[in-house]
């Protein structure tokens, strides 16, 4: 069963001198447990697509169904709640709260969800181990390498037990070794946890790790 259905999705920016059709008629369905790379050159519309998918931005036209529900029908307040409970986010950078430790960053999202302190701590500690950062749980983001920070971000995304995780160019700031490590870890979590990952990249090496590749250009799915 597909957990994401995208129908005839359009996003046109009109605040520019010439309207930009950043997403221009995309149809796509993603099944539970998929490990999907959205690939395309810079400016092709990857970020716009992921933002629409994550409920951060609203489409000009078309529908997005998540778990069978059209997210267009949610109020902005409901959408915040929906993001908190159903979608995991990993951004390119500035993922973490600098004044919180790795462990606290992971626990924080569970606090937003209203989990009890003991449970938060337990789950966060488990996730720290899972992403291979045991011993670094009390480090603040500034004391971690870029790759380690992204792993904390993935752990944070997992901690909210979402339906899927969206990662917009998660490896863009990483060197090739850290990129490889992060992708392997994500692929691993995809298998062991059956977590659905959708990530964007324009990096050839990253594409190799993906099990499904959706190539877009000029706001359209090319193949």
């Amino acid at each position: 069963m597909s957990i994401i259905e995208i129908h005839n999705l359009h996003k046109t920016y009109t605040d520019t001198s010439v309207p930009v059709k950043a997403v221009n008629g995309i149809n796509l369905s993603i099944k539970e447990g998929e490990f999907t790379a959205i690939v395309g050159p810079s400016g092709s519309g990857k970020t716009t697509l992921l933002n629409l998918l994550g409920g951060l931005d609203t489409p000009t036209e078309g529908d997005i169904f998540i778990g069978g529900m059209n997210i267009k029908n949610l109020t902005s307040r409901q959408l915040i709640d929906f993001r908190l409970h159903h979608i995991g986010f990993v951004f390119q950078s500035y993922n973490l709260i600098p004044v919180l430790t790795a462990l606290e960053n992971i626990a924080f999202i569970m606090e937003l969800q209203g989990l009890k302190k003991l449970q938060r701590h337990e789950v966060a500690m488990k996730l720290i181990k899972k992403v291979g950062l045991e011993g670094k749980e009390n480090f603040r983001p500034g004391e971690l390498s870029g790759g380690q920070q992204q792993r904390v971000a993935v752990a944070r995304a997992l901690a909210s037990r979402p339906k899927f995780i969206l990662a917009d160019e998660p490896t863009a700031n990483l060197d090739s070794h850290a990129t490889e490590e992060l992708l392997n870890m994500m692929a691993d979590l995809n298998k062991t946890e059956n977590m659905t990952f959708i990530f964007s990249t324009h990096d050839k090496r990253v594409m190799d790790k993906a099990r499904r590749i959706v190539t877009i250009d000029d706001g359209k799915v090319v193949y």
Partner: peptide, 16 residues
Amino acid sequence: KREIGMLMAIGMTKGR
């Protein structure tokens, strides 16, 4: 700004 934007994106309400 970016940090607060991130927090709002991952699901922090305006009230918080």
